[in-house]
Design a protein around this nucleic acid. Sequence first.
DNA 1: ATGTAAGTTGACGTTAACGTCAACGTTATA
DNA 2: TATAACGTTGACGTTAACGTCAACTTACAT
Lengths: 168, 168
Amino acid sequence: MNKVNVTSNDPKWGVQAFATLFDITPRAVRFYEDKGLITPCRENGSRVFGPVEYVRFERILRAKRLGFTLDDIKEVLDVMDGTVRAHVELRRRRENFARVVKNLSRRREDIKKLTADMTDLCARIDTHLADVNPDDHGLAFAADYEAVFREHFADEHTSDINRNDDNA
Amino acid sequence: MNKVNVTSNDPKWGVQAFATLFDITPRAVRFYEDKGLITPCRENGSRVFGPVEYVRFERILRAKRLGFTLDDIKEVLDVMDGTVRAHVELRRRRENFARVVKNLSRRREDIKKLTADMTDLCARIDTHLADVNPDDHGLAFAADYEAVFREHFADEHTSDINRNDDNA
DNA sequence: ATGTAAGTTGACGTTAACGTCAACGTTATA
DNA sequence: TATAACGTTGACGTTAACGTCAACTTACAT
Protein backbone atom coordinates (compact mmCIF):
# COMPACT_ATOMS: atom_id res chain seq x y z
CA MET A 1 0.00 0.00 0.00
CA ASN A 2 3.06 2.24 0.26
CA LYS A 3 3.52 4.30 -2.88
CA VAL A 4 7.32 4.07 -2.97
CA ASN A 5 7.58 5.22 -6.59
CA VAL A 6 10.64 3.09 -7.34
CA THR A 7 11.51 4.17 -10.84
CA SER A 8 15.22 3.41 -10.32
CA ASN A 9 15.85 0.17 -12.23
CA ASP A 10 12.81 0.50 -14.45
CA PRO A 11 13.56 0.35 -18.17
CA LYS A 12 13.74 3.68 -19.96
CA TRP A 13 13.77 4.52 -23.62
CA GLY A 14 14.42 7.51 -25.82
CA VAL A 15 11.99 8.22 -28.61
CA GLN A 16 13.99 6.27 -31.17
CA ALA A 17 14.35 3.14 -29.03
CA PHE A 18 10.75 3.37 -27.94
CA ALA A 19 9.53 3.66 -31.51
CA THR A 20 11.52 0.65 -32.70
CA LEU A 21 10.03 -1.34 -29.83
CA PHE A 22 6.67 -0.96 -31.52
CA ASP A 23 8.05 -1.07 -35.04
CA ILE A 24 7.05 2.47 -35.90
CA THR A 25 8.87 5.75 -36.45
CA PRO A 26 9.75 8.48 -33.93
CA ARG A 27 7.58 10.80 -35.96
CA ALA A 28 4.53 8.67 -35.21
CA VAL A 29 5.31 8.72 -31.50
CA ARG A 30 5.64 12.49 -31.48
CA PHE A 31 2.44 12.74 -33.45
CA TYR A 32 0.65 10.73 -30.81
CA GLU A 33 1.95 13.07 -28.16
CA ASP A 34 0.74 16.09 -30.12
CA LYS A 35 -2.67 14.42 -30.21
CA GLY A 36 -2.51 14.03 -26.45
CA LEU A 37 -2.45 10.24 -26.35
CA ILE A 38 0.82 9.97 -24.43
CA THR A 39 2.69 12.41 -22.25
CA PRO A 40 6.19 11.05 -21.59
CA CYS A 41 8.30 12.76 -18.97
CA ARG A 42 11.13 14.99 -20.09
CA GLU A 43 14.78 14.98 -19.12
CA ASN A 44 16.36 18.26 -20.18
CA GLY A 45 14.12 18.59 -23.18
CA SER A 46 14.20 15.01 -24.44
CA ARG A 47 11.30 12.60 -24.11
CA VAL A 48 11.78 9.66 -21.77
CA PHE A 49 9.49 6.65 -21.96
CA GLY A 50 9.01 4.18 -19.13
CA PRO A 51 6.86 1.15 -18.29
CA VAL A 52 3.75 3.24 -17.92
CA GLU A 53 4.11 4.65 -21.41
CA TYR A 54 4.87 1.18 -22.70
CA VAL A 55 1.64 -0.45 -21.56
CA ARG A 56 -0.29 2.62 -22.58
CA PHE A 57 1.19 2.55 -26.03
CA GLU A 58 0.48 -1.14 -26.37
CA ARG A 59 -3.19 -0.51 -25.91
CA ILE A 60 -3.15 2.47 -28.21
CA LEU A 61 -1.72 0.41 -31.05
CA ARG A 62 -4.01 -2.49 -30.25
CA ALA A 63 -7.02 -0.28 -30.74
CA LYS A 64 -5.48 1.29 -33.82
CA ARG A 65 -4.95 -2.09 -35.44
CA LEU A 66 -8.67 -2.69 -35.05
CA GLY A 67 -9.40 0.40 -37.07
CA PHE A 68 -10.17 2.96 -34.39
CA THR A 69 -9.09 6.52 -34.99
CA LEU A 70 -6.75 8.31 -32.63
CA ASP A 71 -9.60 10.53 -31.55
CA ASP A 72 -11.65 7.45 -30.68
CA ILE A 73 -8.77 6.13 -28.64
CA LYS A 74 -8.28 9.42 -26.87
CA GLU A 75 -11.91 9.37 -25.81
CA VAL A 76 -11.18 6.13 -24.00
CA LEU A 77 -7.85 7.19 -22.52
CA ASP A 78 -9.32 10.39 -21.20
CA VAL A 79 -11.84 8.42 -19.21
CA MET A 80 -9.15 6.04 -17.96
CA ASP A 81 -7.03 8.97 -16.88
CA GLY A 82 -9.99 10.34 -14.98
CA THR A 83 -9.94 13.67 -16.78
CA VAL A 84 -13.62 13.39 -17.64
CA ARG A 85 -15.42 14.33 -14.45
CA ALA A 86 -18.75 15.51 -15.85
CA HIS A 87 -21.33 12.79 -15.28
CA VAL A 88 -23.27 13.59 -18.42
CA GLU A 89 -20.19 13.21 -20.57
CA LEU A 90 -19.19 10.05 -18.74
CA ARG A 91 -22.57 8.55 -19.41
CA ARG A 92 -22.37 9.51 -23.08
CA ARG A 93 -18.98 7.87 -23.52
CA ARG A 94 -20.01 4.79 -21.60
CA GLU A 95 -22.81 4.26 -24.10
CA ASN A 96 -20.35 4.58 -26.96
CA PHE A 97 -18.02 2.11 -25.29
CA ALA A 98 -20.83 -0.35 -24.89
CA ARG A 99 -21.62 -0.05 -28.58
CA VAL A 100 -17.97 -0.61 -29.37
CA VAL A 101 -17.96 -3.82 -27.34
CA LYS A 102 -21.01 -5.05 -29.21
CA ASN A 103 -19.41 -4.27 -32.55
CA LEU A 104 -16.26 -6.06 -31.49
CA SER A 105 -18.14 -9.33 -31.41
CA ARG A 106 -19.32 -8.63 -34.93
CA ARG A 107 -15.70 -8.09 -35.84
CA ARG A 108 -14.98 -11.54 -34.59
CA GLU A 109 -17.50 -12.83 -37.11
CA ASP A 110 -15.81 -10.81 -39.82
CA ILE A 111 -12.50 -12.40 -38.92
CA LYS A 112 -14.00 -15.86 -38.97
CA LYS A 113 -15.51 -15.43 -42.41
CA LEU A 114 -12.51 -13.71 -43.89
CA THR A 115 -10.21 -16.37 -42.49
CA ALA A 116 -12.38 -19.05 -44.03
CA ASP A 117 -12.42 -17.26 -47.36
CA MET A 118 -8.69 -16.71 -47.42
CA THR A 119 -7.71 -20.23 -46.44
CA ASP A 120 -10.12 -21.54 -49.04
CA LEU A 121 -8.60 -19.27 -51.63
CA CYS A 122 -5.09 -20.35 -50.67
CA ALA A 123 -6.12 -23.97 -51.10
CA ARG A 124 -7.57 -23.26 -54.53
CA ILE A 125 -4.40 -21.50 -55.56
CA ASP A 126 -2.34 -24.45 -54.37
CA THR A 127 -4.34 -26.97 -56.35
CA HIS A 128 -4.23 -24.72 -59.36
CA LEU A 129 -0.47 -24.29 -59.13
CA ALA A 130 -0.03 -28.04 -58.66
CA ASP A 131 -2.30 -28.77 -61.60
CA VAL A 132 -0.80 -29.51 -65.00
CA ASN A 133 -3.41 -28.21 -67.42
CA PRO A 134 -4.78 -24.69 -66.98
CA ASP A 135 -8.56 -25.12 -67.22
CA ASP A 136 -11.34 -22.60 -66.47
CA HIS A 137 -10.14 -22.00 -62.95
CA GLY A 138 -11.04 -18.33 -62.76
CA LEU A 139 -14.81 -18.64 -62.94
CA ALA A 140 -15.14 -21.16 -60.15
CA PHE A 141 -15.69 -18.57 -57.47
CA ALA A 142 -18.41 -16.57 -59.12
CA ALA A 143 -20.40 -19.74 -59.82
CA ASP A 144 -20.09 -20.94 -56.24
CA TYR A 145 -21.27 -17.76 -54.66
CA GLU A 146 -24.11 -17.10 -57.07
CA ALA A 147 -25.50 -20.49 -56.08
CA VAL A 148 -25.77 -19.90 -52.35
CA PHE A 149 -26.96 -16.32 -52.60
CA ARG A 150 -30.72 -16.68 -52.21
CA GLU A 151 -30.66 -18.21 -48.77
CA HIS A 152 -27.92 -15.87 -47.68
CA PHE A 153 -29.77 -12.79 -48.84
CA ALA A 154 -32.99 -13.90 -47.18
CA ASP A 155 -31.19 -14.29 -43.87
CA GLU A 156 -29.65 -10.86 -44.12
CA HIS A 157 -32.87 -9.05 -44.71
CA THR A 158 -35.19 -10.68 -42.23
CA SER A 159 -32.83 -9.60 -39.46
CA ASP A 160 -32.43 -6.18 -41.02
CA ILE A 161 -34.62 -4.47 -38.47
CA ASN A 162 -32.11 -4.44 -35.63
CA ARG A 163 -29.22 -2.80 -37.41
CA ASN A 164 -26.70 -0.65 -35.64
CA ASP A 165 -23.88 1.55 -36.79
CA ASP A 166 -20.14 1.10 -36.89
CA ASN A 167 -17.19 1.90 -34.69
CA ALA A 168 -17.22 4.76 -32.24
CA MET B 1 -24.61 -28.12 -64.60
CA ASN B 2 -26.70 -26.12 -67.09
CA LYS B 3 -25.78 -22.48 -67.05
CA VAL B 4 -29.29 -21.14 -67.55
CA ASN B 5 -28.42 -17.60 -66.50
CA VAL B 6 -31.83 -16.93 -64.96
CA THR B 7 -31.53 -13.30 -63.97
CA SER B 8 -35.29 -12.74 -64.34
CA ASN B 9 -36.65 -12.53 -60.80
CA ASP B 10 -33.30 -11.80 -59.19
CA PRO B 11 -33.26 -8.62 -57.10
CA LYS B 12 -31.78 -5.56 -58.80
CA TRP B 13 -30.71 -2.26 -57.39
CA GLY B 14 -29.71 1.15 -58.65
CA VAL B 15 -26.64 2.76 -57.17
CA GLN B 16 -28.64 4.65 -54.56
CA ALA B 17 -30.60 1.63 -53.34
CA PHE B 18 -27.51 -0.53 -53.43
CA ALA B 19 -25.53 1.99 -51.40
CA THR B 20 -28.21 2.28 -48.71
CA LEU B 21 -28.24 -1.51 -48.45
CA PHE B 22 -24.71 -1.27 -47.12
CA ASP B 23 -25.25 2.00 -45.31
CA ILE B 24 -22.82 3.95 -47.44
CA THR B 25 -23.11 6.64 -50.12
CA PRO B 26 -23.41 6.26 -53.90
CA ARG B 27 -20.14 8.13 -54.16
CA ALA B 28 -18.35 5.36 -52.28
CA VAL B 29 -19.82 2.73 -54.58
CA ARG B 30 -18.72 4.61 -57.66
CA PHE B 31 -15.31 5.06 -56.09
CA TYR B 32 -15.00 1.32 -55.61
CA GLU B 33 -15.86 0.82 -59.26
CA ASP B 34 -13.20 3.32 -60.31
CA LYS B 35 -10.76 1.32 -58.24
CA GLY B 36 -11.82 -1.81 -60.08
CA LEU B 37 -13.34 -3.63 -57.12
CA ILE B 38 -16.80 -4.03 -58.67
CA THR B 39 -18.04 -3.90 -62.24
CA PRO B 40 -21.84 -3.73 -62.23
CA CYS B 41 -23.64 -4.20 -65.52
CA ARG B 42 -25.14 -1.19 -67.23
CA GLU B 43 -28.65 -0.55 -68.50
CA ASN B 44 -28.62 2.43 -70.83
CA GLY B 45 -25.82 4.11 -68.94
CA SER B 46 -26.97 3.46 -65.38
CA ARG B 47 -25.33 0.96 -63.08
CA VAL B 48 -27.38 -2.09 -62.15
CA PHE B 49 -26.40 -4.22 -59.17
CA GLY B 50 -27.51 -7.81 -58.72
CA PRO B 51 -26.90 -10.71 -56.34
CA VAL B 52 -23.36 -11.23 -57.60
CA GLU B 53 -22.42 -7.67 -56.81
CA TYR B 54 -24.15 -7.97 -53.47
CA VAL B 55 -22.10 -10.88 -52.17
CA ARG B 56 -18.98 -9.38 -53.65
CA PHE B 57 -19.60 -6.09 -51.91
CA GLU B 58 -20.31 -7.83 -48.64
CA ARG B 59 -16.84 -9.31 -48.67
CA ILE B 60 -15.26 -6.08 -49.74
CA LEU B 61 -16.73 -4.23 -46.78
CA ARG B 62 -15.94 -7.10 -44.45
CA ALA B 63 -12.28 -6.83 -45.33
CA LYS B 64 -12.43 -3.06 -45.14
CA ARG B 65 -13.85 -3.16 -41.62
CA LEU B 66 -10.80 -5.18 -40.61
CA GLY B 67 -8.55 -2.41 -41.79
CA PHE B 68 -7.45 -3.62 -45.18
CA THR B 69 -6.94 -1.05 -47.89
CA LEU B 70 -8.88 -1.19 -51.13
CA ASP B 71 -5.68 -2.11 -52.95
CA ASP B 72 -5.19 -5.02 -50.57
CA ILE B 73 -8.72 -6.17 -51.27
CA LYS B 74 -8.29 -5.84 -55.00
CA GLU B 75 -5.26 -8.12 -54.81
CA VAL B 76 -7.54 -10.80 -53.42
CA LEU B 77 -10.44 -10.20 -55.78
CA ASP B 78 -8.17 -10.31 -58.80
CA VAL B 79 -7.07 -13.78 -57.83
CA MET B 80 -10.67 -14.84 -57.19
CA ASP B 81 -11.68 -13.52 -60.59
CA GLY B 82 -8.89 -15.51 -62.14
CA THR B 83 -7.29 -12.49 -63.79
CA VAL B 84 -3.90 -13.35 -62.32
CA ARG B 85 -2.59 -16.14 -64.52
CA ALA B 86 1.16 -15.74 -63.98
CA HIS B 87 2.32 -18.47 -61.60
CA VAL B 88 5.03 -16.34 -60.06
CA GLU B 89 2.56 -13.63 -59.16
CA LEU B 90 0.07 -16.19 -57.90
CA ARG B 91 2.69 -17.65 -55.62
CA ARG B 92 3.65 -14.21 -54.35
CA ARG B 93 0.07 -13.34 -53.47
CA ARG B 94 -0.58 -16.72 -51.92
CA GLU B 95 2.25 -16.05 -49.48
CA ASN B 96 0.78 -12.68 -48.61
CA PHE B 97 -2.63 -14.25 -48.09
CA ALA B 98 -1.11 -16.84 -45.78
CA ARG B 99 0.48 -14.05 -43.76
CA VAL B 100 -2.84 -12.28 -43.60
CA VAL B 101 -4.50 -15.39 -42.19
CA LYS B 102 -1.81 -15.64 -39.52
CA ASN B 103 -2.25 -12.00 -38.58
CA LEU B 104 -6.01 -12.47 -38.39
CA SER B 105 -5.57 -14.78 -35.43
CA ARG B 106 -3.52 -12.08 -33.75
CA ARG B 107 -6.36 -9.74 -34.42
CA ARG B 108 -8.59 -12.08 -32.51
CA GLU B 109 -6.31 -11.62 -29.53
CA ASP B 110 -6.50 -7.88 -29.98
CA ILE B 111 -10.27 -8.06 -29.90
CA LYS B 112 -10.22 -10.22 -26.80
CA LYS B 113 -8.01 -7.84 -24.87
CA LEU B 114 -9.75 -4.72 -26.03
CA THR B 115 -13.11 -6.22 -25.20
CA ALA B 116 -11.89 -7.07 -21.73
CA ASP B 117 -10.49 -3.59 -21.25
CA MET B 118 -13.62 -1.87 -22.44
CA THR B 119 -16.05 -3.95 -20.42
CA ASP B 120 -13.87 -3.39 -17.38
CA LEU B 121 -13.84 0.31 -18.03
CA CYS B 122 -17.60 0.38 -18.45
CA ALA B 123 -17.99 -1.38 -15.12
CA ARG B 124 -15.72 1.13 -13.43
CA ILE B 125 -17.69 3.99 -14.92
CA ASP B 126 -20.91 2.44 -13.68
CA THR B 127 -19.69 2.06 -10.12
CA HIS B 128 -18.32 5.59 -10.21
CA LEU B 129 -21.59 7.01 -11.47
CA ALA B 130 -23.51 5.05 -8.86
CA ASP B 131 -21.16 6.19 -6.12
CA VAL B 132 -22.12 9.08 -3.90
CA ASN B 133 -18.79 10.65 -3.02
CA PRO B 134 -16.32 11.39 -5.80
CA ASP B 135 -13.01 9.99 -4.51
CA ASP B 136 -9.69 9.48 -6.35
CA HIS B 137 -11.26 7.40 -9.11
CA GLY B 138 -9.08 8.61 -11.95
CA LEU B 139 -5.75 7.22 -10.83
CA ALA B 140 -6.96 3.67 -10.36
CA PHE B 141 -6.01 2.53 -13.84
CA ALA B 142 -2.44 3.75 -13.90
CA ALA B 143 -1.73 2.12 -10.55
CA ASP B 144 -3.19 -1.20 -11.67
CA TYR B 145 -1.23 -1.42 -14.85
CA GLU B 146 2.08 -0.29 -13.41
CA ALA B 147 1.82 -3.25 -11.06
CA VAL B 148 1.56 -6.01 -13.65
CA PHE B 149 4.09 -4.56 -16.03
CA ARG B 150 7.26 -6.50 -15.17
CA GLU B 151 5.90 -9.93 -15.92
CA HIS B 152 4.11 -8.63 -18.96
CA PHE B 153 7.20 -6.98 -20.37
CA ALA B 154 9.32 -10.08 -19.81
CA ASP B 155 6.82 -12.17 -21.78
CA GLU B 156 6.81 -9.74 -24.64
CA HIS B 157 10.53 -9.69 -25.14
CA THR B 158 11.43 -13.32 -24.79
CA SER B 159 9.11 -14.02 -27.71
CA ASP B 160 10.39 -11.05 -29.61
CA ILE B 161 12.53 -13.11 -31.95
CA ASN B 162 9.70 -14.39 -34.07
CA ARG B 163 8.09 -11.13 -35.01
CA ASN B 164 6.29 -10.57 -38.25
CA ASP B 165 4.86 -7.54 -39.95
CA ASP B 166 1.36 -6.24 -40.30
CA ASN B 167 -1.47 -6.53 -42.76
CA ALA B 168 -0.88 -7.15 -46.43
C1' DA C 1 37.44 21.63 -30.81
C1' DT C 2 35.20 18.61 -33.53
C1' DG C 3 32.59 15.31 -35.02
C1' DT C 4 28.75 12.16 -34.29
C1' DA C 5 24.68 10.40 -32.53
C1' DA C 6 20.59 11.57 -30.28
C1' DG C 7 17.25 14.70 -29.42
C1' DT C 8 14.07 19.10 -30.41
C1' DT C 9 10.36 22.12 -32.96
C1' DG C 10 8.12 23.89 -37.04
C1' DA C 11 6.56 23.63 -41.79
C1' DC C 12 5.17 21.46 -45.67
C1' DG C 13 4.15 17.20 -48.58
C1' DT C 14 1.52 12.81 -49.18
C1' DT C 15 -1.84 9.09 -49.49
C1' DA C 16 -6.27 6.81 -48.98
C1' DA C 17 -11.04 7.14 -49.11
C1' DC C 18 -14.11 9.41 -49.86
C1' DG C 19 -17.37 14.39 -49.72
C1' DT C 20 -19.07 18.02 -52.31
C1' DC C 21 -20.24 20.50 -55.71
C1' DA C 22 -21.30 21.55 -60.97
C1' DA C 23 -23.25 20.52 -65.34
C1' DC C 24 -25.69 17.38 -67.67
C1' DG C 25 -28.92 13.30 -69.49
C1' DT C 26 -33.23 10.11 -68.87
C1' DT C 27 -37.70 8.71 -67.29
C1' DA C 28 -42.24 9.14 -65.13
C1' DT C 29 -45.87 11.68 -63.34
C1' DA C 30 -49.01 15.68 -62.68
C1' DT D 1 -44.58 20.53 -70.73
C1' DA D 2 -42.42 21.06 -66.67
C1' DT D 3 -40.71 19.41 -62.66
C1' DA D 4 -39.15 15.98 -59.84
C1' DA D 5 -36.49 11.75 -59.14
C1' DC D 6 -32.75 9.22 -60.40
C1' DG D 7 -28.84 8.60 -62.98
C1' DT D 8 -24.12 10.09 -65.22
C1' DT D 9 -19.07 12.08 -65.44
C1' DG D 10 -15.46 15.30 -64.12
C1' DA D 11 -13.12 18.35 -60.92
C1' DC D 12 -11.87 19.95 -56.71
C1' DG D 13 -11.98 19.84 -51.43
C1' DT D 14 -11.16 17.32 -47.06
C1' DT D 15 -9.52 14.51 -43.22
C1' DA D 16 -6.49 11.33 -40.77
C1' DA D 17 -2.06 9.74 -39.94
C1' DC D 18 1.72 10.27 -40.69
C1' DG D 19 6.56 11.21 -44.05
C1' DT D 20 10.02 14.34 -45.10
C1' DC D 21 12.68 17.76 -44.89
C1' DA D 22 15.16 22.00 -42.46
C1' DA D 23 17.34 24.34 -38.83
C1' DC D 24 18.82 23.81 -34.37
C1' DT D 25 20.48 22.07 -29.52
C1' DT D 26 22.81 18.90 -26.35
C1' DA D 27 25.85 15.05 -24.72
C1' DC D 28 29.72 12.63 -25.37
C1' DA D 29 33.91 10.38 -27.47
C1' DT D 30 38.22 11.40 -29.96
